[in-house]
Design a protein around this nucleic acid. Structure first.
Lengths: 177, 177
DNA sequence: TAGTATGTTTAGTTCTTTCTAAACATACTA
DNA sequence: TAGTATGTTTAGAAAGAACTAAACATACTA
């Protein structure tokens, strides 16, 4: 009985671990978030170690990364030397944090690289066939990245996750035009 | 002069390589796509080897993966034993292909795992405090995944990339409400 | 049929990331 | 101040992914 729900918790944590991995984060990071997310009480570092089954060192670094992404928050209890962690439960906030931290900079870099390549082609001199071709192809890629970059910026400006649900309707309407 | 635009090509290819890596694909895969994308003529496997500087084996497997994702297409010339490749230049098609192949299945799995965890909790018996808490937290996660899953489905139904650009305006309007 | 051109598979190496174990730093407690 | 509780850093081990080199398969050519 009590055993059933422990299994449920572990199943959930494993799921988080896998998702984390899929999104390019360490597996342990997802597992740790899962444990904190499913804990009614604030968790200390040692309690996380116990629940997730990785070492203190690993928890220490992963939890710091989680904090950087705004996925958990550290809370210090007065008169207690331990750090306690509680989960951020506003997923939209989390998604935006990750978009901002990671995706945005990578998109910018991608865009910049294409820009640079195009510039290099421009400097390549007179308009022979190849140069025209390169300009066209690179130009198309550039505009893809601009579109995506724009999209990310737009998402970042959104206030809440509900807006995303609204999206479906909006897009449905758009399609019907 | 000719040298300038060779450098531009390599810069571009390197960029593709990096992006590929960021999205969780092999670096070589992005580089190979870059080379095919920037070639005015169809490329044979050996020509790719030469341009990208990885081995035949690597090109063989990576190019197959690219084909599976619909990012390049194989074209057989009659009276020529070689396989030739040309790029898919419709990015929206590519994005949808990737969403369908990779993201969708991973989202489904994530959703399923959370569903299962919730079920396990339900079977955990009478409604004590902890069970109620778990139901709430897992339920919130479930609805996040449903929203995302829904969003992906919606995107997959879109006809073209331009719709995405339209998004900004749509969302802007929505925000102003 | 022997030889050649092409693409695929495979065994093993290399590279990168993440984790562990243990040393370390810090600061509180007696 | 010595001892203890806590978190961090680090050196190295383990694991996983991707690549290479070479063997292999296939099918065309002479």
């Amino acid at each position: 009985m009590e055993d059933e729900i422990l299994k449920a918790k572990n199943h959930f944590i494993q799921g988080m671990s896998r998702i984390s991995n899929f999104w390019g984060f360490p597996k342990a990071m997802g597992a740790i978030y899962g444990a904190i997310y499913l804990s009614p009480e604030l968790l200390s570092l040692d309690e996380i170690v116990e629940q997730v089954g990785v070492t203190k060192g690993s928890v220490s670094t992963n939890v710091r990364q989680l904090e950087r992404l705004g996925m958990v928050h550290k809370k210090l209890q007065i008169g207690d030397r331990k750090d306690y962690y509680l989960p951020e439960t506003d997923f939209w906030k989390i998604i935006k944090g990750i978009l901002r931290e990671r995706e945005k900079s990578e998109f910018d870099l991608a865009l910049r690289t294409v820009d640079e390549s195009l510039e290099m082609v421009q400097e390549g001199g007179e308009e022979n066939e190849k140069i025209i071709f390169y300009k066209e192809r690179m130009g198309a890629m550039q505009s893809l990245f601009k579109t995506l970059d724009n999209l990310v910026s737009t998402l970042l400006a959104l206030e809440n996750l509900v807006s995303l649900s609204t999206l479906k309707n909006l897009l449905d309407k758009e399609e019907r035009k």
